[in-house]
Design a protein around this nucleic acid. Structure first.
Length: 559
RNA sequence: GGCCCGUUGGUCAAGUGGCCUAAGACUCCGGCCUCUCACGCCGGCAACACGAGUUCGAAUCUCGUACGGGUCACCA
């Protein structure tokens, strides 16, 4: 365990002579000059090519934690698993973050592009750094080469299984922990494959307490496993890379999914072995999905909504997904939002300790609600921009229509928008086509069926009568006054309350009259303000629609 | 199976020993709102997993049980 000259002989056999010393690395990556309390966070995905919903949440928590404290948010790529490699796994992640408005301060910012003084930020390019630390561990007797093959390890596990003990490479179950130096040297020099293992100093029957920013004090068994630090190809395992990278990148807060909780004692032990100060940890609960009455983790493979590209394709406003995430996972956010309906998300005093320790179900209706609320506050201009950007990607026909006459598009989008009680009926851009369809002849599908209590001949009379009094110049009051004036002669009550008092005396009420007009103009029973719609459509289009409807009656299609 | 984490209405949650005959939001259902729908407003349904213990007093602390999740790799 103590440093001996023999260990340095071993080091020479194990490591290339050019690896830097740990001291040199300390100098190269000095502590950051940041204000007191500034958090340095990092999102460290594997380059799988796309961003998972859980990953987005983690990155978002990292971003907010850094921003809120005047710190730094790093994107690091953990490409230490050759088997999972995909061609350009980075761009999808970087673009995903960009799409969701999560700014990267430092690290990987694009395909083969990095920024910052603590790099490289791609683990495959940090080999020398890992080896420097590993070398010192060997010098100190805290790591050793292990020559066990995968078959031997499988067999070991099988024996442990039948013996009913904890599986793993530890204590008396190890075969290479106490190999004599001569044998180590001989086998290494003979070119035998080996991994580098931690020589654990821990006692599995002891407990350690570790603070977690979300869960409070955690009581966990001390690590006693001689885990692999460097794989046979010299690439570090996640555990070792985590410790080395987060130390030399001077990361202060490690926010990660709670599947790492079981490895926390290991990581603490590794930081100790390396002589580094551990960061603060926050283990977040995964987002769950309901299935057959049970809960399960949202899965990338089985759930389309788990890939964040789903939200882009559906046209949810990017920023709303974050808003939803906060609603879902950060208690207190909704109260803050109610108090500050128009405040920027960045100004929310995000606190890790307010995150829920248990997994929340992904709730689509809630997402829709959040989006409706946010979108309701957008100007027509903003909705237009958002809609056009979406349509260009996903609906070329709609994009062309929106672009052909921007003023017209904005005019129709501004109906019932703004004011104290804005409409809340648009949640995502994939609804836009349907939302605007009756404003565009190219999308409009004429034809309708009347409500049962309105006779076709009455409907025809209503349309004819309205056509006679219509004037494009009417303001809303005049428009409505004219409609009311039409009612009584046709047997409809101009007053809804009067109708309700004496339903037998009328064929219907003014609402039925406007329903007929609405159907003729939009082919729908439910729309925003009819007067505003008529005005936006313009005289020519409106008259055509009325003529058309009248013609339908004349041809007896409705009778 | 060992170890770890978790458990308040259908969902998300507030709640850190008395202010809890348990807040709010989503969903659903009623009602109101001089044109429909939406919005808004008013109201309704609906929860502390279970059992012991500590205490004058427990959603809140302790222990046990159940259930859910995670983890036990040269994957992350």
């Amino acid at each position: 365990m103590l440093q001996t000259p023999a260990d340095s002989t071993l080091c020479a056999a194990l490591f290339a002579p050019d690896s830097p010393t740990v001291e040199a690395l300390e100098a190269q990556y000095p502590p950051r000059e940041l204000p007191e309390g500034a958090a340095v966070t990092r999102f460290a995905p594997s380059p799988t090519g796309f961003l998972h919903f859980g990953g987005l949440f983690g990155a978002f928590a990292d971003r907010l934690t850094a921003s809120g404290s005047g710190g730094v948010f790093i994107l690091r790529i953990e490409d230490t698993d050759k088997k999972r490699e995909v061609e350009d796994g980075v761009s999808g992640i970087v673009e995903g973050l960009r799409f969701f408005c999560i700014k990267i301060d430092e690290g990987v910012v694009g395909f083969e592009q990095e920024r910052g003084a603590y790099g490289p930020y791609t683990q495959s390019r940090r080999r020398l750094i890992y080896h420097a630390v590993a070398k010192r561990l060997v010098e100190q007797g805290l790591a050793y080469p292990c020559f066990c093959t995968e078959e031997e390890l499988d067999e070991l596990r099988a024996r442990q299984e039948t013996a009913g003990v904890n599986k793993g490479y530890y204590g008396k179950w190890t075969r290479c922990r106490d190999l004599p130096l001569e044998e180590q040297l001989r086998r290494v020099r003979a070119g035998e494959a080996y991994t580098l293992r931690l020589r654990s100093q821990g006692d599995g029957s002891q407990r350690i307490t570790v603070p977690d920013l979300i869960r409070g004090k955690l009581e966990l068994p001390e690590n006693n496993m001689d885990v692999v630090l460097l794989k046979a190809d010299g690439i570090p395992t996640y555990h070792f890379a985590h410790v080395v990278d987060d130390h030399f990148m001077r990361v202060t807060h490690v926010i990660r999914s709670d599947e790492w909780l079981a490895n926390l004692p290991l990581h603490i032990a590794l930081f100790r072995a390396c002589g580094f100060k551990p960061p603060k940890y926050a283990h977040t609960a995964p987002v769950m999905k309901e299935e057959n009455g049970g809960k399960r983790k949202l899965s990338k493979r089985r759930d389309p909504e788990a890939a964040v590209s789903y939200f882009a394709a559906q046209g949810y406003p990017p920023y709303c997904v974050q808003e939803y995430l906060l609603t879902l996972l950060n208690s207190g956010f909704e109260d803050w939002r109610r108090a500050n309906p128009r405040a920027m998300l960045e100004d929310y005093p995000f606190q890790l300790k307010k995150l829920s320790p248990s997994g929340a179900l992904f709730d689509l209706p809630k997402l829709e609600d959040v989006c409706k609320n946010v979108l309701a506050l957008y100007s027509a201009e903003e909705v237009y921009a958002l809609g056009l950007a979406w349509a260009k990607e996903h609906d070329a026909e709609l994009a062309a229509l929106l672009e052909r006459d921007p003023d017209y598009a904005k005019a129709l989008l501004s109906i019932d928008r703004g004011g104290a009680k804005p409409r809340k009926d648009l949640a995502r851009m994939s609804q836009l086509r349907e939302y605007v369809s009756y404003f565009y002849d190219a999308l409009y599908q004429p034809g309708f069926t009347l409500p049962e209590h309105i006779a076709a001949e009455d409907a025809a009379r209503i349309l004819a009568a309205y056509a006679r009094v219509y004037s494009p110049a009417d303001d809303k009051e005049t428009w409505f006054a004219k409609i009311k004036a039409l009612c009584a002669p046709l047997g409809f009550s101009p007053d809804v309350k009067e109708f309700k008092r004496n339903p037998g005396q009328w064929k219907g009420h003014v609402g039925d009259v406007t329903t007929v007009l609405r159907l003729a103009v939009t082919a729908r029973r439910n729309t925003p303000d009819l007067w505003a719609i008529m005005r936006a459509l313009g005289e020519e289009r409106l008259c055509a629609r009325l003529q058309n409807a009248l013609a339908l009656f004349a041809e007896s299609h409705i009778y």
